[in-house]
Amino acid sequence: MSAARPGKLEGVRVVDLSLFLPGPMLTRMMAEEGATVIKVEPPGGDPARAMEPFENGVSFWFHALNRGKTCLELDLKTAAGRDALWRLIEDADVLLEGFRPGVMARLGFGWEAVAARNPRIVYCSITAFGQEGPLADHPAHDLGAWALSGYLSVNDAPDGTPVVPGVPASDMAAGLTGLAAILMALLARARTGRGDRIDLSMFDALFPWGVHIMGEAVVDGRPVRSATQRSLGGHAFYNVYRTLDGKHVVLCGREAKFARNLLEALGRPDLVPLAESPAGPAHDPLKSFLATTFATRSREEWVHWFHGRDIAFAPVLDLEEAVRQPHVRARGLIVETDGAHLLGSPFRFSDG
């Protein structure tokens, strides 16, 4: 049996002062690739430890985000706590923190002070809106970044009312963007010998995710409306449809070949020109036909009907159904270790 390969981040030491989602997710991914991550928690521990549900007495949320890390509590308002943190920082390659702007400096651990003690350190701060700018001191979690980015306005119900998103996209975007920035800084340090300061905000990280719809606002100077935007429900072949049993399916590909394949199979090739027209009111007759058609069979009947056809289609699963898919297991996205369920890594390397 061949020996397990060393992690790609073996030898990298990370001090993680972050809580909740963006920072812990970032450092979890680093820990999975061999980084030594020391999670510094406030007195009483990370609030995520108390978040339900629990498995084997441990919060699923906390375990999923913090496995593989060394956790310790430090009170940074005491001299002993600050001394202990300095000892960790002096040997660290990365320092990650998620306090509001100015807090680290008030504690004595601002970028300048840390860099003076450890010039090679990569210092990453994750906040809602960044270290500077008109919104820098504005308190917010994920939903606030959604709202001020404009994206919540197009995550709307049929009557136009914004709906709370099911996934905290700005948190996740910040974690992924922060990971990329830290790795870039570590690569640069290998050449220069110097660390770097990363000012990362959830708002900044989320903003580019709307590149597919941003042009209408930036170039045309008009708000984006989901009812007319091709990627947000304005196109008949990028939409959600209700089935006979009250469940839902989606058409998820606007290419002409998919529209032609479906409409010909349904005996309505005359509707193909509508599918190729710009999104918006012109698609209303096509949407009406598809809505009526999908309402004639159950979700599972449609799954069988679409099997083997070259059409971008998917059933809408609830989360319990989704996590039990064979594909999820095959890709290692849910794993079970020592009687506990964990979220697997999305990284798949050839020598993994």
Rank of each mutant, 00 (worst) to 15 (best):
V103I: 13
T36G: 09
D83G: 15
E41C: 12
P101R: 06
E90C: 07
V37P: 11
R28Q: 15
A48L: 07
P22D: 09
L72P: 02
P43Q: 10
P24N: 12
P42T: 07
P101C: 04
P22E: 05
F62T: 01
T36N: 07
A48H: 01
R87Y: 01
A31K: 09
A64C: 14
V94Y: 09
P47I: 13
G45I: 01
D75Y: 07
T36H: 12
G57T: 06
S59E: 09
T78R: 12
R87W: 00
E97M: 02
E41H: 12
K77Q: 10
N66E: 02
V94N: 08
R67V: 09
W61P: 00
E41A: 12
P24L: 13
W61F: 15
G34Y: 06
L96M: 09
M29C: 05
F99G: 06
C71E: 14
E41N: 12
A79N: 11
A84E: 11
N66H: 03
W61A: 07
L95V: 14
R82H: 00
E41M: 13
W86N: 01
V40C: 12
D83Q: 15
A35T: 09
R49P: 05
T70Q: 15
E73S: 11
L88F: 00
N56V: 05
A50D: 14
L107Y: 01
G23H: 10
R106K: 14
F60K: 13
G81T: 03
P24V: 13
A48G: 11
G81W: 03
E52Q: 14
P24F: 12
D91R: 15
L72R: 14
A31V: 05
W86C: 00
F60I: 14
A105S: 07
N56K: 15
R100T: 08
H63P: 00
L65S: 03
N66D: 03
T70R: 15
R67W: 07
C71K: 11
R82C: 02
L26Q: 13
V103A: 07
L72Q: 13
F60V: 14
L88V: 06
H63C: 06
E32V: 09
E33H: 15
P22Q: 03
G98V: 07
L88Y: 02
T78N: 08
L65G: 05
E32W: 10
D91F: 00
E73H: 01
T27W: 04
A64P: 02
E73Y: 00
K69M: 09
I38M: 14
L76V: 00
I38A: 13
P101K: 04
T70H: 14
I89T: 03
V58G: 07
I38G: 13
E52F: 12
R100G: 08
T27A: 04
A50M: 12
D75T: 03
E33D: 13
A92F: 04
N66P: 01
A80T: 08
T70P: 05
R82Y: 03
G44D: 09
P42A: 11
E41T: 10
P22L: 06
A64Q: 12
D75W: 06
M51V: 15
T78W: 09
D46K: 10
K69L: 08
K77Y: 01
L26S: 07
M51T: 12
L107M: 02
V103K: 04
A35P: 07
L76Q: 01
L95E: 06
F60P: 00
M29H: 14
E52L: 14
P101V: 02
E55L: 11
E32Y: 04
D75M: 06
M51N: 04
M25T: 11
